[in-house]
Amino acid sequence: MKLKEIKEILNAEVLTGGEYLDREVHSAFGSDLMSDVLAFVDDGTILLTGLTNPQVIRTAEMIDLFAIIFVRGKKPGEDILKLARNNKCTILKTDHILFTASGLLYKSGLRGVKIEGAKIND
């Protein structure tokens, strides 16, 4: 699924990185815990989070995440957007809560990150 489809599904606003909306997304991860993001997420994955601080962008940078979707209408500050721009990271903002945003993407065929050793994966 392309980033621009995700933008449509979530009725999201592009805060930065609109030039990369043709990038292909393979899976998604939703969390406000950055260490879990570092542990479980691979490239080609998007992150849905309600956390808006520079550490979210740093975390994304470390593992080559190219897109972050801020949920619950959270709007990050200009410093965060600047950091995202420097890292060629797309930032989307949706008013949906994490649960609803995840559900809408799942319904459209996007699946979650597979966790090694987990008994259930979908």
Binding site: L33, M34, S35, D36, A39, L51, N53
Partner: peptide, 15 residues
């Protein structure tokens, strides 16, 4: 509140 302090830092480093 910054998204850290969930007790995964050192285990992540070790992994």
């Amino acid at each position: 509140e910054l998204g850290f302090g969930a007790g995964m830092g050192l285990p992540n480093i070790k992994k």
